[in-house]
Simulated assay, not measured.
Amino acid sequence: MRNTLIAIALSMICSHAVAEKLYKWVDENGVTQFSQQPPASDQYERMNVTAPPKLGSNMAPAAPAAPSESDTQNGETDAAAKKAEREQQAQREAQCAKLREDLTTLENNPRLGRTNDAGEMERIGEEERQAMIAKAREDLATYCN
């Protein structure tokens, strides 16, 4: 139980990471490279990295970013767009699996707790637990079916 709470707390802390831009390209030796700075060549793909949603938050689908003219000129192709769409679908499936796991935890553990802002452990009441279960079920029905 304690390990679960620690894992939840760490995931909440990590979810506050700032979105970063990454650039992906293949160098002259045929090796795929990743960097936060664009390469000197014009052949690269810009990748947007975002943090996962918080536990119990809305899992609203991310709006696909419209490619700008510079992206199109820098090698953005239909294949890259399809690959990004597949990656987004895989990320959504992972989020749905995590949401199902969280729902199972909420349903099977009537005595849940969390650490408040003062650093003290407090028990989650039954009404709040039921509200969290309802929210998780609603998110599953809306975004994962």
Rank of each mutant, 00 (worst) to 15 (best):
R2E: 14
N3A: 12
I8E: 13
I8T: 06
S11Q: 09
I13H: 10
C14I: 15
H16Y: 15
A17C: 13
A17V: 15
A17F: 11
K24D: 01
K24W: 06
K24F: 02
D27I: 06
Q33H: 03
S35R: 05
Q36M: 12
A40R: 12
D42S: 14
D42I: 06
E45Y: 09
E45M: 08
N48D: 14
P52H: 04
G56K: 09
G56F: 03
S57E: 14
N58H: 06
M59A: 05
A62K: 08
A63S: 09
A66Q: 14
A66E: 11
E69F: 14
D71C: 05
G75K: 03
T77F: 08
D78K: 11
A79Y: 12
A81F: 06
A81L: 13
K83T: 15
A84Q: 08
R86L: 10
R86T: 11
E87V: 09
Q88V: 05
Q89D: 08
A90G: 01
A90L: 09
E93L: 06
Q95P: 00
Q95N: 08
C96D: 03
C96V: 04
A97S: 10
A97R: 02
R100G: 00
R100L: 05
L103H: 08
L103R: 04
T104Y: 07
N108Q: 15
N108M: 12
R111E: 10
M121I: 11
Q130C: 00
Q130Y: 05
A131Y: 04
I133E: 01
K135R: 15
A136S: 14
R137E: 12
L140Q: 03
A141D: 15
T142I: 07
T142F: 00
T142M: 04
Y143D: 01
C144V: 10
